[in-house]
Amino acid sequence: MTSLSPKNLPSADLAPAQLERGVSPWLDAWRRLRRNHLAVFGGVTLIILSLLCVIGPWFSPYGYQETNLANTFSPPSAAHWLGTDQLGRDLFTRLMFGGRISLMVGLVATFVALTIGVIYGAISGYVGGKIDRVMMRIVDILYALPFTIFVILLMVFFGRNIVLLFVAIGAVEWLTMARIVRSQIMSLKRMEFIEAARSLGLGTPRIIFRHMIPNILGPIIVYTTLTIPGVMLLEAFLSFLGLGVQPPMSSWGVLIKDGAERMEEYPCLLLFPGTVFSLTLFSLNFLGDGLRDALDVRAAKD
């Protein structure tokens, strides 16, 4: 047990950092985050992966679209570190290019869904009454509308466009987040410290965003880390419908899907994209857990 943040210890044993005075809460959180080795590992891995995807392709001797039909399905070699695909394209290069798309989609679309979901759910849960009922019935309606049809319509009316990808994904992924946040807010609403804040005359937005949301960061972060892989794979389905990345550009979702079809013959084509995908998700998760612990206001309150 060497790498634990103070928060992880039984709450009675307070770590020295928490007892120090005059330290800003952000700096405090940062310190705690830094001590969480898993979170640091996650963060560092994410940074390395992102850098690799953003900068890496410039150093690659191959293009993502560059075919070499004489050299298809080659195993990893000095020339092609991770081998080549069905068109003789360099898998490593395609992974880096695909990472740009997947990381962007995963982070941006999730952020969109997160923002909408949290704000919507918080308002609905806090305000309650008729407004809550109408807002939640809208959520029910959006759940039920046929997604495939919605996506095809989007594409037909607006053409192919990366922004649409975020719209399409954002439109479905925020719903569950909103319901989770709403139920959490509703259970917080009657807690003493919120009643106290209200009696102090604090405005509703301030109460929601300064006092309530920090208290429900846990479920939000956990659900966000569940959303990201869903979003990245959804992107592969959307490109099947013709929305999102178009060949020869690729994404991790599409590479995994392609790899899955050849997993018996050419396992590398699944193994490498799958590994990078998993590594990213594990890292995000470690980072998410660490962040949650570091930002935990209750721990600071103690």
Partner: peptide, 26 residues
């Protein structure tokens, strides 16, 4: 929390999240 059991259970969960159904099924 933060014992081997936690890590085992959590990595099981993470593994389930990382492997899409169209890979796990086949």
């Amino acid at each position: 929390r933060n014992t081997k059991i936690d890590y085992l259970a959590s990595s099981f969960a993470m593994t389930g999240i990382c492997i899409p159904t169209f890979v796990l099924g086949p």
